Amino acid sequence: MPNPRTTAVAATLALLALAAPATAAQARTTTANWLNVALFAGSDDKQLVGRDSATLHCADDGVATGHPHAAQACRDLAAADGDVAGIAHRDGMCPMIYSAVTAKAYGTWNGRHVEYSKTFANDCVMKAQTGAVFDLSVPATG
């Protein structure tokens, strides 16, 4: 007569073996694409601006979280293969007012380390050159 404990252990191991391929398949469908982004007043990293930082998560399945403009920021980064400096610059006019802002980011995109830091003349110039990645303003509702 089989030992009940041995039967229970064998049944548990069999269930775990069946579940393992599903877990592995799920892990392959989403990539750990994420960036921690932050804005600082001036040309140093001592004084955070407004909503100080956010961690942007961009999944392969199109789900974007952790950032007020996550979906657009993920699209901007995807188009530049995770390279913030490679984001297409938007045309437009920015005021010629010097109010420096420093944008910093670090994280992982498609398995590679990403790091970015640049000081811009003002917020408008920054958004024109980095898309939604550093737009940490809360979207208007209505």
Rank of each mutant, 00 (worst) to 15 (best):
L35T: 09
S53M: 10
A88N: 11
G142F: 10
T6M: 11
P139M: 05
V138P: 01
P2S: 13
P68G: 02
W109F: 11
V114K: 01
S53F: 15
Q129T: 01
V84M: 06
A105Q: 12
L18Q: 05
A38M: 08
K127L: 10
S137R: 13
A19Q: 00
G142P: 07
A8P: 10
Y98R: 06
A11Y: 05
P2F: 15
Q72A: 14
V84T: 06
V101F: 03
V114H: 04
A20K: 01
D52C: 00
G107N: 03
M93I: 09
L13R: 14
D44R: 11
D123G: 05
A80R: 08
A105M: 13
T141R: 07
Y116W: 04
A128F: 06
A32E: 10
D83L: 00
N110R: 15
A80S: 10
T102F: 02
V63I: 10
M1W: 06
S43Y: 00
N33F: 05
N33Q: 07
L13I: 09
R75I: 06
L16M: 11
C94I: 08
D123C: 02
R90Y: 01
A11N: 02
V125M: 10
Y98D: 14
L13V: 09
F134A: 03
L16Y: 02
V114S: 03
